[in-house]
């Protein structure tokens, strides 16, 4: 009675939609959960703020809390100039947060447990940084890779290191979220699987299943923490990378 911990990550095609080139586009379980993430985000931010109360309801407070959390994070990292990216960072945060959280519901699907999704989001950030960096600073943006105050003979080495670290950013950015979600869900499924396996043994098995049950409860709590934390980590790294596009010199941006 083995449990397949990988099954939960399978993409099921519900029905085909169209074909782009050679690629078949299907409505998938992943797409449905993306829609739920987007829907819940909109529900939270639009549904609770409709009455525009000066004294907020509880849910309006939650919406305002997420707003202020991301606004303050972005402003602290990039200064006021970075606030034009606020909708972008906020959308990333809320999309990943809800994707991670609803993935924890049993029978759910975790959109962010697929590398293609996290890689797409990380590359979106990566190219936003490059395009905005050149658009705003011109070629001077390349100074990002040449820190000031370095001895001349060190510059080639430093530039290579800076370039390597810059181009490895989308990898670490995407793999961090993907691996956290994947590993968390596999662990949960394996530990929860022990409950079912032991339960099949009989009465002694039921007693023995108490331990994995307790562990599952604890792990679920931990995974909720990880879900929120990884969404926040993704967003704050986005802020840091965007700051490089806005302020390519390594000097700290002027305090606001």
């Amino acid at each position: 009675m083995a449990v397949d911990p990988i099954h939960q990550f399978e993409i099921h095609n519900v029905f085909p939609i169209t074909q782009i080139g050679t690629a078949q586009i299907h409505l998938t379980n992943s797409a449905i959960f993306m829609a739920i993430s987007v829907g819940l985000t909109m529900l939270l931010l639009l549904g609770t703020t409709g009455s525009r109360r000066l004294v907020p309801t509880r849910m309006q407070s939650v919406a305002e809390l997420t707003y202020e959390l991301m606004a303050n994070t972005l402003r602290n990292v990039t200064g006021d100039e970075g606030m034009k990216f606020f909708p972008f960072v906020f959308s990333l945060f809320m999309f990943i947060l809800f994707a991670n959280l609803i993935g924890l519901i049993p029978y759910g699907f975790t959109v962010t447990s697929h590398l293609i999704i996290t890689a797409a989001l990380a590359l979106l950030v990566f190219f936003t940084v490059i395009i905005y960096g050149f658009w705003k600073n011109g070629l001077a943006w390349l100074k990002l890779f040449v820190p000031s105050g370095i001895p001349t003979f060190m510059i080639p080495l430093i530039v290579v290191i800076e370039l390597l670290s810059f181009f490895s950013r989308p990898i670490s950015h995407s793999v961090r979220l993907f691996a956290n979600m994947l590993a968390g869900h596999i662990t949960l499924k394996l530990v929860a699987g022990f409950i079912a396996m032991l339960g099949g043994v009989g009465f002694v098995g039921w007693l023995g299943a108490i331990a994995p049950l307790a562990l599952t409860v604890a792990l679920t709590a931990l995974e909720f923490l990880v879900a929120a934390l990884q969404a926040f980590v993704f967003a704050i790294l986005t802020c840091i990378y965007l700051n490089d596009a806005i302020h390519p010199s390594h000097d700290p941006h002027p305090a606001h």
Partner: peptide
Amino acid sequence: TFASQLFW
């Protein structure tokens, strides 16, 4: 599955 995922 990549194409569908990226599309959505």
